[in-house]
Amino acid sequence: MVNGFTGEFLGTMVLILFGTATSAGINLKKTYGSQGDWLYVSLAWGIAVTMGVYVAAMFGTQGHLNPAVTIAYALFGLFPWGQVLPYIIGQFLGAMVGAAVAAFMFIPQFKATTSQEGNGVGIFATRPAIYAPFYNFMSEVIATFAFIFVLLNLGDFTTGLKPLIVGLVITVVGIGLGTTTGFALNPARDWGPRLVYTLLPLPNKQSSAEWNYAWIPMCGPIVGAILATGLEALLK
């Protein structure tokens, strides 16, 4: 009876959280969801994660790709502490190299686009639709909590078609919970490209990489991942 209640409660909570947040993101003003290209962005990032997990798995890792996952899993005994530092260093350096290669590919487009037209840090890192630090932080906590909570219940998510499921989870998180802050979910995904944007002499780039905001996509995902993993451990 208790197990029936717990499973149905948590499952319905996840269902309504994603669904209601999607409705809010589409209907309310000043969200990324009110822009016509947000589905494109969310789907692309979801597929990107799928491809990354497949590649990582082929080289014998657990496909975390995300320091928040690595830290939270280690804290609750799901991952060896001895591998935490190599994973995190690899995640940040991989994010930086990926961002640098993409930047190089689009140099002519950077030259053709002013900062007023979209040539800014938002290409590389996340930024809030409305700057409200407490709510921005909580948005990242909630979005990452939802992502990690689902991830934990996939088991080994590097096998078979499970990486595709992980990508679909990222997509629905983006569509439903990512419209307020751009859903970093991942400190490496934000800080690596943000640093590349800071260092590279890209044409027409804006003067600031908005490092005053960067603590939110660093700390929010880590807190959300720890809370999700802790709850999972408590319930099981």
Rank of each mutant, 00 (worst) to 15 (best):
20 T>Q: 15
50 T>S: 15
169 V>R: 08
25 G>F: 10
186 N>D: 06
16 I>Q: 06
10 L>V: 09
103 A>H: 07
69 V>E: 01
9 F>W: 12
101 V>C: 13
34 S>W: 03
174 G>H: 09
201 P>E: 05
203 P>S: 08
28 L>I: 08
43 L>S: 04
140 E>F: 03
138 M>A: 06
23 S>M: 15
226 I>M: 00
168 L>V: 14
184 A>I: 08
182 G>T: 07
148 I>V: 14
14 V>I: 15
125 A>I: 09
206 Q>W: 04
70 T>Q: 10
148 I>N: 01
101 V>H: 07
216 I>K: 08
163 P>M: 07
179 T>N: 14
174 G>F: 14
125 A>Q: 05
168 L>T: 04
119 N>W: 15
232 E>C: 01
173 V>K: 14
118 G>R: 11
199 L>N: 02
180 T>G: 04
3 N>T: 06
130 I>P: 06
219 C>M: 15
178 G>S: 05
172 V>A: 04
56 A>E: 07
129 A>H: 09
43 L>T: 13
99 A>K: 06
63 G>H: 01
54 Y>C: 07
165 I>P: 02
190 D>A: 05
15 L>P: 02
147 F>E: 07
144 T>K: 14
55 V>T: 10
61 T>Q: 05
123 I>K: 11
219 C>L: 15
43 L>N: 01
222 I>L: 05
229 T>H: 01
97 V>L: 15
91 Q>D: 13
230 G>H: 03
119 N>H: 13
94 G>S: 05
127 R>Q: 14
68 A>F: 03
122 G>V: 12
201 P>L: 10
173 V>G: 09
177 L>G: 08
68 A>V: 00
84 V>C: 03
227 L>V: 01
14 V>K: 06
37 D>V: 11
33 G>A: 14
107 I>K: 12
55 V>R: 00
50 T>G: 02
228 A>H: 04
97 V>F: 15
76 F>R: 00
116 Q>C: 06
